[in-house]
Design a protein around this nucleic acid. Sequence first.
DNA 1: ATGACCGATCTTATCGGA
Length: 263
Amino acid sequence: MKIATWNVNSLRVRLPHVLQFLQDEQCDVIGLQETKVDDDKFPEDEIRKLGYSCLFSGHKAYNGVAILTRDESVAVSDASFGIPGYPDPQKRLAAATITAQSGASFRFVCGYFPNGQAPGAAKYLYKLEWFCALRSAIEARLRTDPNLILVGDMNVAPTDEDIWDPEGWKGHILVSDAERDAFNSLIALGLTDAFRKAPVTEGDWSWWDYRNNALLRDQGARIDHTLVSDPLVGKIESVKIRRAYRELPQPSDHAPVVLELSL
DNA sequence: ATGACCGATCTTATCGGA
């Protein structure tokens, strides 16, 4: 089972890259973030032609998430959007139950976590509140779906190992104590950062700023994550950050992250 | 650094991103 997460920063602009990714990687399930497209303009036809079904929840300009599933390898049921019990006009969460041909199934949750702007800002408080609401929802879901995979652009570099200049970034968004505490409160539900447990990994950072030649200087952060619940930890085979997609012309500022599980 | 780069819009300026 191959699962990917990718903040595409506008699906319409990045569609050629996404189609290339679908053909080259043959993932079974892909979570996309920052689609920035209204549902009635979602480029479903192009994606369907490659054998993928689409679930999406978006609006123009900001946010937006989608789940693409490979028709010949997985079945999809019980799709839902948004955090249960947390009304939010921003489209940041999509989920579905995925069943493999083997019969194995898991709840797949794709999130575009708030950026937060700066510690103390209103958007930062929203980020922490959003984390808290998500934690409650995941906690409840794990009771009925012990097999759960949460992926997405979480906008947190969990440790100093996950940012190119931890000293320079100290106190900044992505690395502040409150954000890391919020991330760890999710982990404490019984989730594991697959990148840190995988026997095989590729890459270090999943995001490089467009500015300042950050990619060339390899000034990045690992903020796009694949978290798996306890029963799935032993099935992690690899987590690979596909930097090559960040190196294409007119790229997203994020690279796709691919998790392989023996499912 | 009131900076950079990129995408989107109520587009030729501004906002949000991270």
